[in-house]
Amino acid sequence: MGHVKPPSLFLLAGMAALGPLALNFFVPALPAVAAQFAVTPSAAQWTLTLYFIGISFGQIIHGPLSDAIGRRPVVLGGLALYALASFACYFAATLELLLVARFMQALGGCVGMVMSRAVLQDVFQRERFAAALSTVVMVSAVAPMLAPAVGGFVTEWLGWRSVFLLLGSGAVVLLGACLQALSETHLNRNPLTLLSMASAYLTAARHRRFMVNATAAALFPATNFTFMAAGPFLVVELLKGTPSTYGAMAMTAPFGFILGNAVARRVLLRVDHRRIMLVAAGVSLAGLALQLALVSLLPLTLAGLFLPLLVIAFGHGLGLACATGLAMAQLPDLRGTASASIGFLQMGIGAVASIAGSMVVPHGAAATVLTMLAIQGFDLVLLILGGHFDRRE
């Protein structure tokens, strides 16, 4: 570390944002997709579920592969696949073809999520890694948070297929930027065999502190995925809004996340990371409790549904980078594998949370928020358990 020139943090953030962007940008289009292909909302939501599955398992491949052949070729290959799959989504004539293209898009899109974390740990010591990661997390998380607003207007004015045309074009631009500006940062290669890959993941799975911290990091954004699956239908079906209405209201979350992340970057080098994460989880729980009270005790409104997201997202912005950095620090010799494992857990848990959101949305807003509250509560339990392991070891 240190002898390799660090790449631009904004380039890494763009890479990291690309996968989630295809998720959030597309969410407001779900009702339009269901209408065009004459399928139920739950059938249309498979475009989310398969994306989650692809983005989860793709990371398992990209992490060890980059440890063996380097970060740069894996990034370039993943971006090319993402661009091609995005254009395939644009031309998909049936829901089945769209599902296949979405899965391939996820396999390519997840590359930036893994590689951004691995590259940062290649070039920064632990003390600076969390601060650099916090910057990348802020940009890469806020862009997808803003995406529903843009996606809603694009869907309403140009049709849902135009979403994929924009995503594919953006990937081509990012691929060109990486060809020019992304140098190789991983110089000490690990041989890649199925046995070595299995061994690396077994090491990660058996590392108790890594697994607790990685799962806690993965649970931080899980409530977003529950709301992402349920929110468009709550707005369109119950509140009689439009996709652009959902997109505009969903912009409340980025402001809270940016503020939480800004606070995190100011205190990361002075305050114990575990304490920051506990406070962050508590803030998000308080926001969810407020949201539950508003949707349960008062008539359902856009304000009651969306304004508490400011508080919830503040907690996520405050704790996400700390949780990720603490988890990755447990496996310094397996950075690609550690990053892939965190991403797999994040997207795997996100898939479950998304399915849960689609299952509870017919029961209304209160059932959706209760599901989110349970997820965030479990995250707090894991953070407390992780602190217990820290004290013992």
Rank of each mutant, 00 (worst) to 15 (best):
G2K: 09
L11S: 05
M15F: 10
F25D: 13
V33E: 07
A35F: 13
A38Q: 12
T49P: 11
Y51S: 09
Y51D: 05
I61C: 00
H62P: 06
L65I: 05
G77A: 08
M104E: 08
L107H: 05
G109K: 00
G109L: 02
S116W: 03
A118F: 00
V119F: 04
F124H: 08
F129S: 02
L133R: 01
T135P: 02
V136H: 12
A143P: 03
A143F: 06
L146R: 01
V154T: 09
L158P: 06
L165R: 00
L165D: 03
G170C: 03
V172L: 11
L182V: 05
H186S: 15
N190L: 13
L195N: 12
A198E: 08
Y201D: 07
T203L: 13
R209P: 01
A218R: 00
A222R: 06
F225W: 11
P232S: 14
L239P: 09
T242Q: 09
Y246K: 01
R265Y: 06
L269Q: 14
R270D: 11
V271Y: 07
R275I: 12
I276E: 10
A280R: 10
V283L: 09
G287M: 07
A293H: 12
L300D: 13
L309D: 06
F314K: 14
C322V: 07
A327T: 07
M328K: 05
L331F: 14
G343N: 03
L345I: 03
G350L: 08
G357W: 02
G364I: 03
A367P: 00
L382D: 00
G387H: 01
F389Q: 08
D390L: 12
